[in-house]
Nucleic acid binder design. Structure first.
Length: 521
RNA sequence: GGGAGCGUAGCUCAAUUGGCAGAGCAAUGGACUCUUAAUCCAUAGGUUGAAGGUUCGAUUCCUUCCGCUCUCACCA
């Protein structure tokens, strides 16, 4: 039934289309049928014959094609009509004629086929007088009735798509695009393209890591403890066990347990959940790649990362140079690697080497121009935390081209290995691009005694009022006590990477069904 | 949570200083056997997001609410 909150027009169209579906039965057609099996696809037919002339097709016509898809355009002339058929591969024009089809043309003559319906056709390929590759249908079978119309005009052909892009889009209402993604997908070509690229990206990463002898695993989404990152979790509950659980904020500690177990090249591409704000760069559930390689260092992972992302860009977009908004991003290998303190001092040259170890001085500099609430938070920070805050405030947003920032303070890196020469910093890097963090990696802390101390520091931070802290994971310590080989690990935000490679301004443009407030009726 | 903006027909958008709520596409009826934004003739389609207020009169001004977008904060 049409919903009660609909407008008159919408309800009328619905009723009319239902009645048309009923009329299909008089022609022996099931309005919600099944059993038509296409043997070819629109995109392949067009590709295979793109260079065939009208004469070639007439003299040596290819064997008949059997296709099925959604009707996205109808141009009817009474006893003949041109339809545009869309399937997963593309579109192809169909010519249906009363004299060729005989009784099978009746549903067209009676105007029982609408844009949005699915049909199956069989016929031979020719070029129409205007030169377009077209199937002359010898079989025409409506398959499935669409009771609701598609939104507005279809971008059915290249020319039509171009027109709609340059003028009014089919579905422009941002909220509707996210809420009813199926309409967005079926009416907007560039949206289909974006999600295909996202899929290609994930496919590429899997192949890349598989080729390097990594194995893909799945670890728990429901965690008894908060671990692996600094974020607030979602809480849930298991009834039978009467057990409170958290949706995972990161898989890190489970993956490293697997390295202890001997899976010493391991990765997971899966969802993380963080109970934080929603923005164009944050969705509460998002996809993360994490991978761990024994006997590698964080420096090895920098090499791997620039190689993997340069190749991913090539695979997904066809080149290493990518336009993102106003920026032209170059993923070609050889990205700058800058220690965090150095990056800060490049932006704030007035700070001396000595200043960078002066907690009061740094607190003072960081607190410049911020509100009282933030000032209070800064006054509680330790040296590492204030360095991190200074970096985020003055440097992060300025890193447009891919840049590795290395040597993070130990206080903000509770799972990373200390630097051998300078124990106050860790063997860690983050990758930034367009002012955003794309990747985070480090040589793993495999010293269980040090790890125990770091967990305790997290508890102290929690006691100081910090909400985003890790729990003490005694079983993880025990795993480390059984021996974690020297290992480096990395996390890459797949959504943010997909944004870069598809020129998407919002993370919602690369997540099929982003979280929205439920619609009130 | 703070700030800014938006909400008009199924879709995309107009509406002058507060003065009869409109167009294109989609829909419906009709014509039409090579169109591709098909064309031509005709018809229908509205609680202007919701509630309240000011006014002779509100799409327009005010208040509250709902929803969305952007942005700041938070968030690797």
């Amino acid at each position: 039934m049409a919903a009660e909150d609909e407008g008159e027009v919408e309800r009328k169209i619905y009723e009319e289309r239902r009645a048309k579906g009923e009329s299909w039965k008089q022609h022996g057609l099931n309005p919600f049928g099944n059993g038509f099996r296409p043997q070819h696809t629109c995109g392949k037919v067009v590709k295979d014959h793109a260079n065939d002339t009208a004469e070639q097709l007439e003299e040596a016509p290819p064997a008949p094609y059997r296709l099925a898809g959604r009707v996205v355009s109808i141009r009817s002339f009474g006893k003949a009509a041109f339809l545009v058929l869309q399937d997963r591969t593309g579109t192809l024009q169909i010519h249906v004629k009363a004299d060729v089809l005989g009784p099978a043309y009746a549903p067209m003559a009676d105007k029982l086929v609408d844009v949005g319906d699915f049909v199956g056709v069989e016929g031979t390929l020719f070029r129409s007088k205007t030169g377009e590759l077209t199937i002359k249908a010898t079989t025409f079978k409506p398959l499935s009735k669409a009771l609701r119309p598609v939104p507005g005009k279809f971008a059915a052909t290249e020319e039509g798509a171009k027109f709609l892009e340059e003028n009014v889009g089919s579905l422009a209402d941002v909220e509707q695009r996210y809420r009813r993604r199926y309409l967005d997908l079926l009416s907007n070509r560039d949206v289909r393209e974006t999600f295909r690229k996202r899929t290609k990206l994930v496919q590429f990463i899997r192949n890349y890591l598989d080729a390097r002898d990594y194995i893909e695993v799945e670890t728990p989404m429901m965690h008894p403890l908060v671990s692996g990152a600094a974020a607030r979790p979602f809480k849930t509950h298991h009834n039978t066990l009467d057990l409170d659980l958290y949706l995972r904020i990161a898989p890190e500690l489970y993956l490293k347990r697997l390295v202890v177990g001997g899976f010493d090249r391991v990765y997971e591409i899966n969802r993380n959940f963080r109970n934080e704000g929603i923005s164009t760069k944050h969705n509460p559930e998002f996809t993360m790649l994490e991978f761990y390689e024994a006997y590698a260092t964080y420096e090895d992972l920098m090499d791997l990362t620039e190689d993997m992302l340069a190749e991913a860009s090539q695979f997904v977009t066809g080149g290493t140079r990518v336009q993102y908004g106003e920026h032209s991003i170059d993923f070609k290998k050889g990205w700058p690697r800058i220690p965090m303190l150095e990056a800060i001092r490049q932006k704030l040259p007035e700070l001396s080497d000595k200043d960078m170890r002066d907690l009061d001085k740094l607190r003072h500099v960081t607190a410049k121009g911020v509100d009282e609430k933030e000032k209070a938070a800064i006054s509680q920070m330790n040296l590492g935390e204030v360095v991190g805050a200074l970096f985020e405030k003055h440097v992060e947003g300025t890193l447009v081209q891919p840049t590795f920032i290395t040597q993070f303070p130990v206080e903000t890196s509770p799972l990373a290995r200390r630097n051998d020469a300078e124990p106050s910093i860790t063997d860690r890097f983050e990758l930034f691009c367009v002012g955003r963090e794309i990747a985070n990696a480090f040589s793993e802390l495999n010293d269980p005694i040090d790890q125990e101390g770091r967990f305790k520091s997290q508890l102290d931070a929690k006691a100081r009022g910090q909400e985003e802290t890790m729990d003490f994971d005694a079983d993880y310590i025990r795993a480390l006590e059984h021996g974690l080989p020297p290992t480096a690990g990395e996390g890459i935000g797949i959504d943010r990477l997909a944004m870069l490679l598809t020129n998407a301004p919002s993370i919602r443009d690369v997540i099929l069904f982003p979280l929205l407030k439920p619609q009130k009726t």
